[in-house]
């Protein structure tokens, strides 16, 4: 069958692509020049959270699934990557008429392999948690993801390799591919930036692919997507695994950058924070989560003197966003300019 092309739709699509291209170039220029005005460590933190928020947004913005447990993938990928970079040796329990330890004698790995290991772990965890959570719809989905994340939080508290309250400290940054020394802050910043941009473009590709169109169809009307013959559960699970893996990449990178993996990153407050970042920036927008992450991370940085009140401020932002501007910053801008961002 010949595809009928709607000229209006094509025009809208071209305009959408154009506005997104302009925004992308602006973001790229800002991020490349940023280390001249801001501390690289702060920027790297913001970039890790930006990637985390983009990964989270892939689920809520494009499939309509609210995961309230994304800290699980972020934090556990951090633990695994920190462990791989610092110690390497893996000891896995297995059952054979009693519990035994299966030891894989790995040396401490270079940072790219450590991050890869963390990402793969997050993908596997996402596969398990996602397969459970998509068995229920709507609000139950959020509660299940939160509960599973809390379970893994308690596991992180008790498991010996996570170091309990201390976390895994003094993780070496090492040499990228065994060549590039990452102890220099600026070098590390650009490495993190490249990783962030690669993942950002991957997410962009995913949401604009035929697969992404099906995801949006599920968000708009799942029964209809089912009636059109799509196995929506498979699509949801795939999206969940992708989102978990990308959140894992963010967490794994953060562990290498800060040389630390700790309980903070697996706690549910972290899950709440990523929701807040995405909400502030704009649910279902491409650039919203990035801006949201920068806004929230800067806020935490500059308001650090208020100490405990930060939680209250975050709560107020939550309430204000839900009641007053549900589109978020980027969503409002895109709406005012009538473009897609």
């Amino acid at each position: 069958m010949e595809r009928v092309v709607d000229p209006l739709e094509t025009a809208a699509r071209t305009r959408g692509v154009r506005s997104e291209a302009i925004a992308f170039v602006a973001m790229l220029v800002l991020l490349v020049l940023a280390p001249t005005v801001a501390y690289p460590v702060f920027l790297m933190k913001a970039l890790c959270f930006a990637l985390f928020a983009c990964a989270f947004n892939l689920l809520i913005g494009y499939v309509g699934l609210l995961s309230f447990g994304h800290a699980l993938y972020f934090g556990w990928a951090g633990y695994v990557s920190a462990h791989l970079a610092k110690i390497g040796k893996l000891t896995l329990p297995y059952w054979g008429g009693g519990w035994h330890w299966f030891v894989i004698p790995l040396p401490p790995l270079s940072p790219e392999l450590a991050v890869l290991g963390g990402t793969v772990t997050a993908a596997v965890l996402g596969l398990i948690a996602g397969a459970l959570a998509i068995r229920r719809q709507g609000i139950y989905f959020a509660m299940i993801t939160l509960a599973l994340a809390q379970m893994m939080f308690f596991f992180a508290v008790q498991a010996p390799f996570t170091g309990g309250e201390d976390g895994i400290q003094a993780v070496p940054r090492g040499h990228l591919f065994g060549l590039i020394d990452l102890s220099n802050q600026t070098t590390l910043y650009y490495v993190v930036l490249v990783l962030f941009l690669a993942c950002f473009l991957l997410i962009y590709r995913i949401i604009h692919s035929p697969f992404g169109e099906v995801l949006k169809a599920i968000r708009e009307n799942e029964p209809r997507a089912i009636s059109l013959g799509y196995k929506t559960d498979r699509y949801k699970l795939m999206a969940f695994v992708l989102s978990a893996a990308l959140a894992g990449a963010a967490g794994a990178t953060k562990a290498i950058v800060f040389q630390l993996a700790s309980l903070t990153d697996v706690h549910w407050t972290m899950s709440g924070e990523v929701v807040l970042m995405t909400l502030v920036g704009g649910l279902g927008t491409v650039f919203g989560p990035v801006l949201g992450a920068f806004v929230i991370v800067s806020m935490e940085n500059y308001l650090a003197e208020f100490g405990q009140w930060i939680t209250v401020i975050q709560g107020v932002i939550f309430v204000a966003c839900v009641l007053l501007f549900r589109r978020g910053i980027i969503g409002e801008i895109a709406n005012a300019l009538r473009v897609r961002l």
């Binding site: 609210l66 709507g138 929701v275 909400l279 709560g315 939550f318 309430v319 839900v322 009641l323």
Partner: peptide, 15 residues
Amino acid sequence: DHLYGLLLTFGLALI
């Protein structure tokens, strides 16, 4: 959508 209720009450809990 239901999820806004969850987000709002989450914000209130934080406050």
